[in-house]
């Protein structure tokens, strides 16, 4: 299997009109590693994710500046958002399966991206197996995806992102809308993806970041604008944070 790329952000800003959601964001996610982005609400973590796969293009007045590179090639120079979003998959906070059958949730994106009909079923099965959903749903693939439980829906959304064979995954608080049991299943799934994908995950849950992440980036709000405080290895951030904000945040004293 091909080595997943390194994702690097250099001085990235995301602005909504006049207001900067996050500024001067720079960090690097190594190939196949999981990077957790932690910090209080409103510090621009989700805006930063949306800036990476250019979902910000769809919001009027929203602009992204700075350089984002995959293995050194700047994303700004990619020919179109479509091929970028195929390479960089995304999963949202709320499970958002389409109101189609379980099977069609996976086959429809494949069809849209021109995958030949005969390959679609096989790739859908593969994706469902890789998120551990195959055993649970293989005998009711024709049922509406909305009949699944919240945790199953979220894993289906992961499968839907994986079925397009991305190299990078952006996860925007993928467990925060789920109950503890479902959350554990999704966490286990994310852990199993380590090494195969380069993963950038936003989370509020410090314990989860500590269980999953190889690297952690701490964000903070300064003057109504989000910023990156510090990036480091998991143990270093949680035990020996250099920045006072990091130490305070990880000790649970604020935020």
């Amino acid at each position: 299997m091909k080595q997943p790329p390194t994702l690097e952000l250099d001085d990235v800003h995301v602005r909504y009109g006049e207001h900067a959601a996050i500024a001067h964001a720079s960090f690097r996610v190594e190939s196949g590693e999981i990077m957790a982005l932690v910090g209080p609400s409103g510090c621009g973590k989700s805006s930063l994710l949306a800036g990476i796969n250019r979902l910000t293009d769809t919001i009027p007045g929203c602009t992204t500046r700075g350089t984002i590179t995959l293995d050194g090639s700047p994303l700004g120079q990619w020919p179109d958002a479509a091929s970028l979003r195929r390479t960089v998959g995304m999963v949202f906070q709320q499970p958002n399966p389409f109101p189609l059958s379980i099977h069609d949730n996976l086959r429809f994106p494949l069809a849209e991206h021109g995958v030949p009909r005969r390959e679609r079923d096989e790739r859908a099965e593969q994706a469902l197996r890789s998120v551990g959903l195959w055993e649970e749903v293989h005998n009711r693939l024709g049922r509406s995806a909305l009949t699944l439980s919240g945790g199953q829906q979220q894993r289906l959304c992961m499968a839907r992102a994986l079925v397009l064979e991305p190299e990078v995954l952006l996860l925007d608080e993928p467990c925060s809308a789920l109950d503890p049991m479902a959350s554990a299943a999704v966490e286990e799934l994310i852990d199993s993806l380590r090494g195969r994908y380069t993963i950038l995950m936003v989370t509020h849950n410090l314990a989860q970041a500590r269980r999953l992440a190889d690297q952690v980036t701490v964000c903070w709000v300064d003057n109504d604008c989000g910023c990156v405080v510090e990036t480091g290895g998991r143990e270093q951030i949680f035990t020996r944070g250099r920045h006072p904000v990091t130490r305070a945040y990880c000790a649970g004293e604020c935020g």
Binding site: R85, F92, E112, C157
Partner: peptide
Amino acid sequence: HAGAALALS
């Protein structure tokens, strides 16, 4: 949003 993130037309 899901459609946009999957680059669907």
